[in-house]
Amino acid sequence: MKSLVEAAKALAEGFATTFNHLFRRPVTEEYPEVHRVLPARTRARIVLTLDPDGEERCVACYLCSAVCPVSCISMQSAEKEDGRRYASWFRINFARCIYCGLCEEACPTSAIQLTPYFETCERDILRLVYEKEDLLVQHQGKDKEYNFYKVAGVVTRLAGKGEHAREEKPVNVKTNLP
């Protein structure tokens, strides 16, 4: 009997709670009219950023495509005249992307970054396949400073052997001097 009373009480409480909700203001944000300002770290549309010198950061190292759990990133790396490695083509299939952000985490040059912009809907699914020109943006994204080729130690137009940050002059292999 006691448990019956308790059950009835519990039921009544439940009904009362939902009933009270009737008079609360809905928490829904009406999306297309109201655009919520998303945090900068929201994971949505992916971009390729430039380094502070205004050159492409992506060196097409394939780490993002390796780490991508849905295999939506593909690319081909190539070498520029000045010795920079770059992506001759770079493709992200946003129809497949799950915006997990692993590519951003894997990127050693801060090139690939996720932005809060998420309205990438298209009627034709092929238009969700973004090429490099669609992905490139003209800024540094979240990482303003990093410039991979300044520290990498590979010869590019920026610096030759021994001219990068924290490098000694090249060893003269033909001298006997210590």
């Binding site: 590979v154 010869v155 052997k161 924290r166 000694e168 002059k169 060893v171």
Partner: peptide
């Protein structure tokens, strides 16, 4: 290690092998 790194100049070893001594 916070010091400077030793570097080498690379050589051209023909069309088959690339050299990067660093």
């Amino acid at each position: 290690y916070q010091g400077k790194k030793r570097t080498y100049r690379d050589q051209y070893l023909g069309e088959l092998i690339a050299h990067e001594m660093n």
